[in-house]
Design a protein around this nucleic acid. Structure first.
Length: 622
DNA sequence: CTAGGGTTAAGC
DNA sequence: GCTTAACCCTAG
């Protein structure tokens, strides 16, 4: 090593020591990254590297060197003799630095002297990797001191490429935030040790818990619960797997799991897990009990067809370790057995808020009621053997859905409905969903029908909203209004009042308030209707509706009791009204319409409170 | 999670 | 052997 340690200034500058036949740079082989890159032959620092000059100077010479010597040393390697160069030339291993060749020859560790030019010093200096202590060589101390105490480290940082962290360190560090192509493909992924073993029979504790449910179930069954992988990224899956098989095993419940559908890869009950590995054994057939079927039907009634999971999870129903698929299949059998409404493509969807199941004869409760199913009125005679009790299933009779029970509209409902119209316009769903209005028990179409029934004029005009230009025009024609005839209170007379000027406002609420202010003596069930044109605005219709609502409130204060007498069963009478109105509108298009009277019987039978079919409305031109 | 088609064991 | 309920599988 003496020959190496002895500097020979200017030696490499001599042309006789230049290696002329080294391969071109294109054939240059990059040394393995785990080892320091070879030093460049020229040892020329990067011109843009700040301080590179100083490094070169300080790293190769002693303090006794003169300035001239320093100038001549700038391009020299200080520790390589001509013999070394020749030896390197003969070795024809251009990817190795001369010092490395020497090391290979002598079997001694060499001291790297300089970084290759493609290494950025700034990068190296920032690297936290510590160089080994072997770099604390007296010849490597020339760099200006950065940190006195950590001088060796400072020097080391310059001379070493960042190395991959030690193996232990790699295992402990968190998973990289960047993909492998960014963090470095030369390294195995930090979680490589956690990857499941190829050998399925090997100890499963090292496999990822959430790799597949199948493996994981096996893992759970064979591994103690103390294994907690940091890669437990799927708590739900692990929870399912940990809870269902083991707990059932402990309790001895022979079951198909409730999460069977969620873990379809291993839906077997515990007893089946240890069965043959090739073909999964089928679960033992267990007939549906009568209670189970009853609960299923009740669940369908409560939640609707297709809500198998909800039915299954409902604590008020008891199923003997059935899965949601089982429920579905059972219901399919029931439906096939009988007259559960079907379409050509399958079952009719009966959402819980719309329709009840066909084969659960009504208990009187509204189908969309949140009350628990009426278990006191289960479908009778459900046979656990040959399917369900077909009689109950046939109770629905026709293929259609059973009609809902008629329920009369109350004053509060009407008021809330009108309030909803004023708030949301004719957005029946919005009104229906408005919690303040408390109309959930009605369907959106019910709301529409109610308005259409009680306020046919307002509804009609609402359905035919005019153009804005038309509204402007009618506003300009403004004065032609007539005061509605006073109609008898409580007799269902409908007045067609003058169109209120406020109806051109864009705010329904504002219109409502204005209308409420301006007209106070309209009959109870009268409808303030814009009569300038047949086509009116929705907002004006809302004004009418709200107007009448205000009147109803007034009536309520006066103690009027019958609020639902405005409905007429007499379709012919109603038709006459509509025809009369239509004639009036046709006779006086664009002008105020006279009021008309709608006879409403007080002895309304709500049990026959059927709306007129839509075609009847169409017949009268609405 | 569900729908829908397929499969199979049980009952006749 | 046929029918069918219960179960399985898979696409969406």
């Amino acid at each position: 090593m003496n020959s190496i340690t002895e500097p020979l200034p200017g030696l490499l500058d001599d042309p006789q020591f230049q290696i002329s036949d080294l391969p071109a740079l294109t054939e240059f082989q990059i040394a393995p990254l785990r080892n320091p890159a070879p030093t460049r032959h020229g040892n020329v620092p990067l011109p843009l590297e700040p301080g590179a000059n100083n490094i070169i100077q300080s790293s190769r010479t002693t303090k006794q060197n003169t300035l001239a010597e320093e100038r001549s040393e700038k391009k020299r390697a200080p520790k390589i003799t001509p013999n070394d160069v020749l030896l390197a030339r003969e070795s024809k291993k251009p990817h190795l630095a001369i010092s490395e060749l020497l090391e290979a020859r002598d079997g001694q560790e060499i001291v790297p002297t300089q970084l290759p030019s493609f290494i950025s010093l700034s990068v190296v200096e920032k690297s936290p990797i510590q160089a080994p202590a072997t770099l604390e060589h007296p010849y490597a101390q020339k760099r200006p001191r950065i940190d006195v105490e950590n001088e060796s480290n400072s020097l080391d940082l310059i001379r070493r490429l960042p190395r991959p962290a030690p193996k232990d360190e790699r295992q402990n560090r968190p998973a990289p935030m960047l993909p492998a192509m960014v963090t470095g493909l030369h390294e195995p992924p930090p979680s490589a040790a956690l990857l499941p073993s190829i050998d399925v029979d090997s100890r499963p504790g090292l496999s990822r818990s959430n790799t597949t449910s199948k493996i994981h179930v096996k893992d759970i069954l064979t591994e103690s619960a103390q294994y907690t992988s940091p890669a437990h990224a799927n708590p739900s899956a692990s929870q399912v797997d940990q809870e269902t098989p083991t707990s059932r095993q402990l309790t001895g419940v022979h079951t198909t799991s409730l999460q069977e559908a969620a873990v379809p890869a291993n839906p077997k009950p515990v007893f089946a897990l240890t069965a043959s590995k090739d073909s999964k054994p089928r679960r033992t057939r267990r007939k549906w009990s009568e209670n189970e079927t009853r609960d299923l039907l009740a669940g369908v009634k409560k939640y609707g067809i297709g809500k198998w999971k909800q039915i299954l999870d409902d604590p008020s129903f008891e199923f003997s370790d059935r899965s949601s698929v089982d429920l579905k299949d059972r219901y399919r059998v029931c439906a096939n057995n009988d007259s559960v409404p079907r379409t050509d493509t399958g079952f009719v969807k009966t959402p819980p808020d719309t329709e009840t199941s066909a084969f659960t004869e009504g208990s009187g409760a509204p189908p969309d009621s949140s009350a628990p199913p009426d278990s006191s009125a289960p479908p009778d005679s459900i046979s656990p053997d040959r399917g369900v009790g077909t009689s109950s299933l046939r109770d629905s009779g026709q293929s259609g859905k059973p009609r809902r029970k008629r329920r009369a509209w109350t004053t509060i409902e009407d008021r809330n409905l009108l309030k909803g119209v004023g708030k949301h316009g004719f957005q029946w769903t919005a009104i229906h969903d408005d919690p303040e209005l408390d109309l959930h028990h009605r369907r959106a179409t019910d709301l529409r029908d109610r308005i259409r029934t009680k306020y046919p004029e307002g509804y009609k005009h609402a359905e035919t909203a005019p153009l804005k230009s038309e509204l402007k025009r009618t506003d300009k024609l403004g004065g032609q209004t007539t005061v509605p005839k006073a109609a008898g209170t409580g007799t269902g007379k409908v007045g067609i009042p003058a169109r209120s000027p406020e109806s051109s406002s864009t705010s329904p609420n504002h219109q409502a308030s204005s209308a409420l202010r301006s007209n106070s003596n309209i009959s109870l069930h009268g409808i303030a209707i814009s009569g300038l044109t047949k086509r009116s605005t929705s907002s004006s219709s809302m004004t009418m509706l709200l107007h009448s609502a205000d009147k109803e409130d007034h009536q309520d204060r006066e103690g009027a009791k019958d609020k639902d007498k405005d409905y007429t069963r007499d379709k012919s009478s109603e038709k006459d009204q509509q025809q009369l109105l239509q004639q009036q509108q046709q006779q006086q298009p664009g002008v105020t319409l006279p009021s008309f009277t709608l006879d409403v019987g007080d002895n309304m039978d709500w049990e026959d409170n059927r709306l007129p079919p839509l075609h009847e409305w169409e017949e009268i031109g609405m």
